[in-house]
Design a binder for these strands. Structure first.
Lengths: 335, 335
DNA sequence: CTGAAAGCGCTTACAG
DNA sequence: CTGAAAGCGCTTACAG
């Protein structure tokens, strides 16, 4: 790569100190009372040489890299890439760039990502925490690294976070199904100790219980791996074989999509054979025949808010801010 | 944030020079013949203090940031987020992190993204170039910034790139439709002077011409903005109003999805009223009733290859490598 | 009012 | 064989 022009080059050309150039480039010529003529010459030279500040040098000196780390489960997952986009847009307003990484729900990958980004001196993190990463998050907090968790959080850790009111999300969805007359409602969720999943399951269960349907509770948990296969097996069993389920509630978008694939594969008619409510929406839901009802998260607001909180933290705030956004239910013809 | 431990801290603790510590941390104790006992002590101290190298300082000194810039049209678009993921995975094998940005097909945004990432001293770029960015790309090449274009390229610029054989993609798809007996085939594309779009249109046109269907050529071009509305208008006109089109070929994934939404909205039966071939696949295509045939790009290979070429370039290679991957046609029941 | 100097945390050529 | 010193490109407290 071509050698870049530095403050030194401008200083030499104009015949002033590097400091003077630095002041002018940072718009401090007033405060530092650099002469008007000198200011003009410096600006001219900078323009002419096409000076671009070396952010690395600046970072080393100031201790702020003007970059943040974003760790999601998988950037290829539309939910997370959409989130990444809103965060990118928000950050760009402040001249902050985003370094991203995908943890694949794996604590080991998460550790090495955090370490790598920390070594890059990111000013803070927005993290979708995964199982077994409580220790990592605690360590970051102990080191006073600005941090906001998103999508999930740890109840035992006093960190800022932005999440959905997951309890309400599935509670409302389940109540809706019950009001529609469905009684034998099953939920398909991930087997996970993470709070967002626990809350979604709890919302479903309490809705069933409070409606006198405690006996009908039925939560099927699948692993992050082989989601497709497991969901297919469950749906085949519930709807085709046993025929004892009138409605299915999915706990995440990936589970919903797996569910739709299985429904299609088994030629199940919706909502006659079984009613459905999915999670997070997306074009597939609208294109499905019939269109699929779903729990909607205010994704953009969540992304923006998470960045704003992080910005506040990087600016020295020590307040922990915890925001729980309200879900909404988008009703189509699948239930 | 807590103060981090530096080489200096270790040097002080052990009572040796900073240089010695640096050598040991970089595994050069052999070459620089640091005494075995000293090596042991340094490693012990580093472990104890939990030393983490400051990548920013290292970058400033070495001139290599071990990071690359990835500029896509929109990270929230599944095609690009998937690409981002494969590049991330490949880069992580080399301890390289990815800074990303979305240009929104806007030359201005692209310029400022490139500038910002360049100021961050990224070692190179993988760029999905957009309209009117030839100048930017030329400038990068003139500055000898390692660079590989992906998805699209500029025929007049001698840069490395990784793209699909777009001509073959639509040529094959069109020939397939013709063999199936469709004669009045229309293509819906973006209005864009970018090579990938020109080639896709050319592939369609030459397939029509070489089959004696030159008179039936029909290319509808829409703008990046209001894709949904425009595609809907076109499909309504072609299939519902004029009823003069037997098959539609879509030039991108976003266009395909817009098309499917319109098809659903207008209650058009596939493939009876009109046959379809989409671009790039995705779950929506499989879930659609009937499943949609599409042109498939080897996305992962393309992402991996683009990174490998970039790596080669950052390691000093001056060779420009141009790779054109072959598309495949995935046939379902929409045609 | 202005600019020389120190220093951020590293790496590495070089002197001894 | 080993370590002091220079320097990457900045910012900013401080001396004059």
């Amino acid at each position: 790569m071509e050698k870049k022009v530095s403050l030194k080059d401008i200083a030499k050309k104009v015949g002033v100190s590097i400091a003077a150039v630095s002041y002018v480039m940072n718009g401090q010529e007033k405060e530092k009372r650099v002469g008007a003529e000198v200011v003009r010459k410096i600006k001219e030279a900078a323009e002419e040489l096409n000076y671009q500040p070396n952010q690395i040098a600046r970072s080393l000196r100031t201790g702020s890299s003007k970059s943040i780390g974003l760790i999601v489960a998988d950037i290829a997952n539309p939910f997370f890439s959409h989130l990444a986009r809103t965060i990118e847009d928000e950050a760009s307003k402040y001249g902050i760039n985003v370094l991203f990484g995908s943890s694949d729900e794996d604590a080991g990958k998460s550790t090495s990502l955090i370490k790598a980004l920390l070594n890059r001196q990111v000013d803070g993190f927005i993290i979708v925490p995964t199982e077994d990463t409580m220790g990592q998050i605690r360590t970051l907090i102990r080191k006073k690294v600005p941090l906001v968790l998103i999508d999930r959080y740890f109840p035992d850790i006093n960190s800022s976070f932005v999440v959905l009111d997951n309890y309400m999300a599935t509670f409302d969805a389940t109540i809706h199904l019950i009001r529609k007359g469905y009684k034998r409602i099953c939920m398909i969720a991930y087997r996970s100790p993470l709070i967002h999943m626990m809350e979604r399951i709890r919302g479903y269960e309490e809705a069933m219980e409070s409606s006198g349907l405690a006996e009908n509770k039925c939560v099927k948990e699948v692993l992050f791996k082989q989601t497709r296969e497991e969901v297919d097996k469950i749906i085949h069993s519930l709807v085709v074989k046993e025929k004892n389920t009138e409605a299915i509630l999915f706990a995440t978008n990936a589970l919903s999509v797996s569910g739709l694939i299985s429904v299609r594969k088994n030629n199940i008619t919706i909502p006659e054979q079984v009613a459905l409510i999915g999670f997070d929406g997306g074009e597939c839901f609208d294109l499905f025949q019939p269109p699929v009802s779903y729990v909607k998260q205010p994704l953009e607001e969540m992304g923006q808010e998470s960045f704003r909180i992080l910005l506040d933290l990087t600016n020295g705030s020590t307040r922990t801010t915890r925001i729980m956004f309200k879900p909404s239910l988008v009703l189509k013809n699948s239930c």
